[in-house]
Computed example of a mutant assay.
Amino acid sequence: MNCKIFVVSIVVFVACLAIGEGKSLEGVDHKCRCITTESRRMGKLIEKIELFPPNSHCKNIEIIATLKETNQVICLDPAAPWIKKIFIKDKKSP
């Protein structure tokens, strides 16, 4: 009898752990942030640029810019020539 209670207790414990782990991932977005990208040159309009390398949630490099006057957030095309120049130039700087 004690063996059955022990086994049931272990099963309940493992089930509780599994449910708790699933809950901890609820707010996590498992998709890419950028659906569409902008390739037009707009360097003077940008206040901030964030670069997100490929990861387990998105296989794409994502470059997200915040515009100065409107605070609008847009995704930039990493393949755009002007974007490549910015990031190559930054890598060469000491």
Rank of each mutant, 00 (worst) to 15 (best):
I5D: 01
F6P: 00
V8N: 00
V8L: 13
V8H: 01
I10Q: 14
I10V: 15
V11A: 14
V12P: 09
V12E: 03
V12D: 02
F13E: 00
C16P: 00
C16R: 00
C16Y: 02
L17R: 05
L17E: 13
A18W: 03
K23P: 00
E26I: 10
V28K: 14
K31M: 09
C32R: 04
C32L: 07
C32N: 02
R33C: 07
I35A: 06
I35F: 10
T36D: 07
T36Q: 06
T37Q: 08
R41A: 08
R41E: 15
M42N: 02
G43K: 10
K44Q: 10
L45H: 09
L45D: 10
L45P: 07
L45F: 06
I46S: 06
E47A: 05
E50A: 06
E50P: 01
L51N: 02
F52E: 06
P53F: 14
P53A: 15
P53C: 11
P53W: 13
P53V: 13
P54H: 07
P54E: 13
N55L: 07
N55Y: 02
N55H: 10
S56M: 06
S56V: 11
S56K: 08
H57Q: 05
H57C: 01
C58P: 03
K59Y: 12
K59N: 11
N60H: 12
N60S: 11
I61E: 10
I63W: 02
I63T: 01
A65R: 01
A65K: 01
E69S: 12
T70V: 05
N71Y: 08
Q72W: 10
Q72R: 09
V73F: 01
I74V: 14
C75D: 12
C75H: 11
L76P: 01
D77A: 14
A79D: 15
A79I: 09
A80N: 05
P81A: 15
W82T: 08
I83E: 04
I83R: 00
K84M: 14
K85M: 09
K85H: 11
K85L: 11
I86T: 12
F87C: 05
I88H: 13
K89P: 06
K89F: 15
K91M: 12
S93F: 03
S93N: 01
S93D: 04
